[in-house]
């Protein structure tokens, strides 16, 4: 069973003028950290809002935790950190967690026990009795995260969770998310911080203009097909000569060479040739790019990508 399932989900705003989501079909498995990437206005927040019933889909259907999104019942097992969330400012951190936890259906006695742990988790343990109007941006964000966890949810929607959080805090949040995942929770993440997404996500989808452009594991996205970095002990001249002979594109980068081949057979043919001439090979590494490179490539290339 999938934790999040959408089927041709479509959302238009302003009577169809703004197409925030277009025939969006996606499945997210249980126990995964799933990240949604996309430029500003791509429809990431809209997707989460549709899934949580905050906006209504124009077309299509979706389920979270096996229940149709028109049903708020599944929400007791869901945590949500909204983009630009705000809590009533006159409340203290403890009170925010108490009231919002209670709204999620958590027993008050259990909440009283859980609140100190939640605050500790987001490193706000000394701020429980402070009114949140005195909080900094990063502290508010931590507060939002603690709130999202107040009902110990099975499915967590986080819209830009590390927005405004310092580097140390970001690492802590990453570790927290991994920890949650290891406990079987599913995390649905919207983020712009690609280096972070790269470190934490099991699966990534790229969204642009409301359409799904790519979906896969980080590994699949960052490894470039049919490009290999060759590390040789010596004999780079020979390599260049061979590649010229076989008409293989070769570029040098930081002292090593990257060769592009058509398929595995061609790669092995090149290796045979090198070995025939007694060239010592140190390593053949499938070439990787950063997720950022991949993201920019996808988003810029597929300007009007077909679905």
């Amino acid at each position: 069973m999938y934790v999040v399932e959408t089927d041709n989900l479509t959302k238009y705003y302003s009577r169809g003028k703004i197409k925030a989501l277009e025939d969006f079909t996606l499945q997210v498995e249980k126990g995964k950290i799933f990240s949604l990437l996309g430029p500003n206005g791509a429809g990431k927040t809209t997707l989460i809002k549709v899934l949580l019933g905050i906006v209504f889909p124009t077309r299509g259907s979706a389920k979270i935790l096996g229940e149709d999104i028109s049903n708020a019942g599944a929400h007791s097992r869901v945590g949500y950190l909204a983009e630009n969330h705000r809590f009533p400012e006159f409340l203290t951190a403890n009170q925010v967690l108490f009231y919002y936890g209670k709204m999620s259906g958590v027993e008050p006695a259990l909440l009283k026990e859980r609140i100190p742990q939640l605050l500790k988790l987001v490193k706000l343990e000394n701020w429980g009795d402070t009114k949140i109007r005195k909080f900094s941006k990063g502290m508010m964000q931590r507060m939002g995260l603690a709130q999202a966890l107040s009902n110990d949810p099975d499915l967590l929607f986080l819209d830009e969770p590390t927005d405004g959080i310092d580097p140390v805090g970001r690492r802590e949040i990453r570790d927290l998310l991994k920890n949650l995942r290891d406990r079987g929770k599913t995390i649905f993440l919207n983020s712009h911080l690609l280096s972070e997404v790269e470190r934490v996500s099991d699966e990534v989808a790229i969204l642009k203009n409301g359409r799904l452009l790519q979906k896969g594991t980080v590994e699949e996205m960052v490894s470039v097909k049919q490009q290999f970095t060759l590390q040789l002990a010596e004999g780079y001249d020979l390599l260049q000569a061979l590649c010229a002979e076989l008409a293989l594109p070769l570029v040098s980068q930081n002292g090593s060479f990257i060769v592009s081949v058509r398929d595995d057979a061609q790669l092995n043919h090149l290796i045979d040739k090198l070995r025939e001439r007694q060239v010592l090979i140190r390593g053949i590494v499938p070439r990787k790019i950063t997720l950022e490179d991949f993201f920019i490539e996808v988003v810029e290339d597929k300007e009007v990508a077909a679905p």
Partner: peptide
Amino acid sequence: SIDLLISKP
């Protein structure tokens, strides 16, 4: 703030 309330059960 309304987002958060609607996300509750």
